[in-house]
Design a protein around this nucleic acid. Structure first.
Ligand code: FES
Ligand code: FES
Lengths: 159, 159
DNA sequence: TTAATTCCTACCAATTTAGTAGGAATTGAA
DNA sequence: TTCAATTCCTACTAAATTGGTAGGAATTAA
């Protein structure tokens, strides 16, 4: 119930990955797919949609690759997921007009769907890529500190 | 994205309908389906599941029908929808263990999915059938007051 | 020229969704 | 006893969605 599919998950992980490299070199599709363990040919299609939506910029040809098209602080989780899975739509009747249920505005249930829609939207819209990237960096740092006791070579940053 | 299907919607509307009649006579499938504009043979299957889940009680035979198995105040919106559409599962990795993503507990994104899971769950669990039924009655009352100016026969209560 | 890379389009199997359908079993009432 | 109303059980299905795979053209740095 109310699941986010693999598209949304893959796209988000890929975007966080790019956010952590924002301002540096571009990253190739293969690199993202390998490090994030995402099927390459599938991710390719997802990235194509993110590019069409203006969230990702591409450089073609040899040594080309992808990079974020905007500052990570300007991209929300909602922006990403809605590209891949369509706009948030808990129930059709929440968007008053299109495919509204028979009882439309005289329906008590509809008010709750609307509330639910709002809390989901607020949460997804409030999270920025910058926050996610910062948090990912922080986690990685903690992990490295932990393993530094045993090894001089901390696990590669993969996320 | 994150849609609740017709099952969840139909089931919820049917349950609110039953809640508004709780403590009185049982209601036949046909009556519910007709008044709520839900395909009868389809609703039949939904109600079967709600019964197996212990939310609805049935009386068989002529002049039989359905009624809520518990007090409306004891049934939440989550209880209803989860029967029809399965438990809330924003992402598999939120339920730590089963089908978790590769990076599991070293993943920043996972924390957000978990937050999202929580706000959705809290909202759905906080709404009881009693609240919905009361609100539906209130709306109907307002509608009747409105139309009483024009007619002595207010529109039938359908929800 | 070549190798690496993005870009475009088509295809596919499995699952889910949103129902439809037939008929058996139960029961109150005539 | 019979009948009509009703729930109960099981099977079927068309269309859409999901989660990919696949082939090859276009672009560009070296
Ligand atoms: S109007 Fe959509 S559930 Fe009633
Ligand atoms: S562990 Fe599920 S998104 Fe990373």
């Amino acid at each position: 119930m109310l699941e986010i599919g693999s598209k949304g998950e893959y796209a988000t992980r890929a975007m966080v990955y790019l956010a952590r490299r924002y301002g540096r070199h571009t990253t190739s599709l293969t690199a993202i797919a390998d490090e994030q363990r995402i099927p390459r040919r599938y991710l390719e299609q997802l990235i194509a949609e993110l590019r069409k939506a203006g969230l990702i910029a591409a450089t073609r040809g040899a040594s080309g690759g992808y990079t974020l098209a905007k500052d990570p602080a300007e991209i929300s989780l909602y922006d990403i997921v809605s590209v891949l899975e369509g706009p948030l739509m808990v129930q059709d009747c929440v968007e008053n007009g299109r495919n509204a249920c028979v009882f439309a505005d005289e329906c008590a249930v509809r008010e709750v769907w609307t509330d639910l829609h709002q809390v989901i939207y607020d949460k997804l819209k409030s999270v920025t890529l910058k926050q996610l990237a910062d948090r990912a960096n922080q986690i990685r740092k903690e992990q490295n500190a932990k393993y530094a006791i045993y090894s001089r070579y901390p696990s590669e940053m993969v996320n």
